[in-house]
């Protein structure tokens, strides 16, 4: 409506008269235009509203205000958010992290970025383009079929194991619930927890149609150990957990082999998007609260990836 109004007032008198359903006589129009008699400058936004932002803001899942005790930015606990955080750093683009939730995002998922100059909102699927335009990202051929296939591997096998461990094992109650529910009310948290677990279950069932039945029908675990929380499916010999963790192991093995003795993936001279994408998972799989789980144990065993992870941390300034 605001834009409509602007167009209207900008258009010439002849045009506005033809648009109007009742021709307004010139003196009446003049009278109208003289109102309001006094116009003061716009007033300041309330304190809770972000204003005068000089840096691009990256809206992510993060703890508290997103800063540690020393005022340094915290890593997001969400692999996708951490990927973009890291990639912005690797592309030498200064930004500010804003704690947020999926409700804020134009796409319904974090992260997204708001550009400082025009407050334009950039969802994650347009971020790469934006970073290329404004930053200095490393040269990479992301259209290369091999790299594409590997990225798909990360986004399925690593992601499935991550989702499974965080949402469908007791880790959910010891870790995930606190990370992803922002309210302090226990009733609201319980409701949200149920929603989160259901969503994760559905997500996993979609990527693994053969396991869908056992994933969707199994009761959600509250106390059972993570490896046996979902029973073997009736048709196959392996349980969803077994299959998901076996896939994780082989995927990590493949990544180790491809990395070899190089500093960065694909022998690049500086870490890029691919490194950031793998880093998002590998870094977080070793986080506090996950080390004792199978996920943490598997990833800790990958020596090559651990060496590479330290390298990326250093480059990204974490």
């Amino acid at each position: 409506m605001a834009t409509l109004e602007k167009q209207h007032s900008q258009s010439g008198p002849a045009q506005s008269q033809s648009k109007s359903w009742l021709p307004i006589p010139e003196p009446v129009k003049k009278l109208f235009d003289s109102f309001p008699v006094v116009t003061y400058p716009a007033q300041q936004l309330p304190a809770g509203c972000p204003r005068n932002e000089k840096l691009p803001t990256l809206w992510i899942f993060t703890k508290g205000d997103g800063l540690d005790a020393n005022g340094r930015e915290l890593m997001s606990f969400n692999p996708s958010c951490l990927k973009w955080q890291t990639y912005l750093r690797l592309s030498s683009l200064p930004y500010r992290a804003v704690p947020s939730s999926n409700h804020s995002s134009p796409s319904g998922a974090l992260p997204f970025l708001i550009a400082p100059e025009n407050s334009e909102t950039i969802p994650s699927n347009k971020l790469m383009q934006w970073i290329k335009k404004h930053g200095n990202p490393p040269e990479e051929d992301l259209e290369d079929p091999e790299i594409k296939a590997l990225l798909a591997l990360v986004e399925t096998k690593l992601r499935d194991a991550w989702l499974y461990t965080l949402y469908l094992t007791p880790v959910f109650w010891s870790l995930t619930q606190d990370l992803y529910t922002s309210t302090s009310s226990s009733l609201a948290r319980l409701y949200l927890s149920h929603e989160l677990q259901q969503a994760a279950r559905q997500e996993l069932a979609n990527t693994r149609p053969l396991l869908a039945h056992s994933l969707l029908t199994a009761p959600l675990s509250y106390t059972a150990s993570y490896s046996s929380s979902i029973a073997p499916s009736a048709t196959g010999a392996t349980s969803p957990a077994e299959e998901i963790y076996a896939d994780l192991e082989s995927a990590l093995q493949a990544l180790e082999t491809i990395l070899g003795d190089d500093n960065w993936f694909h022998g690049a001279d500086r870490p890029g998007y691919f490194d950031a994408a793998v880093f998002g998972y590998v870094e977080l799989m070793g986080m506090e609260g996950l080390r004792e789980t199978r996920l943490g144990e598997v990833v800790a065993g990958c020596r090559g990836l651990q060496r590479w992870r330290e390298g990326v941390r250093g480059r990204a300034g974490w």
Binding site: W59, S100, H103, S104, P106, S119, T121, S182, T183
Partner: peptide, 18 residues
């Protein structure tokens, strides 16, 4: 359920609160 052109102020307050 924000509009596509929602302002930064509205985005900052989106989410749950009790």
């Amino acid at each position: 359920n924000l509009s596509a052109d929602a302002s930064t102020s509205v985005r900052a307050d989106a989410g749950d609160s009790v």
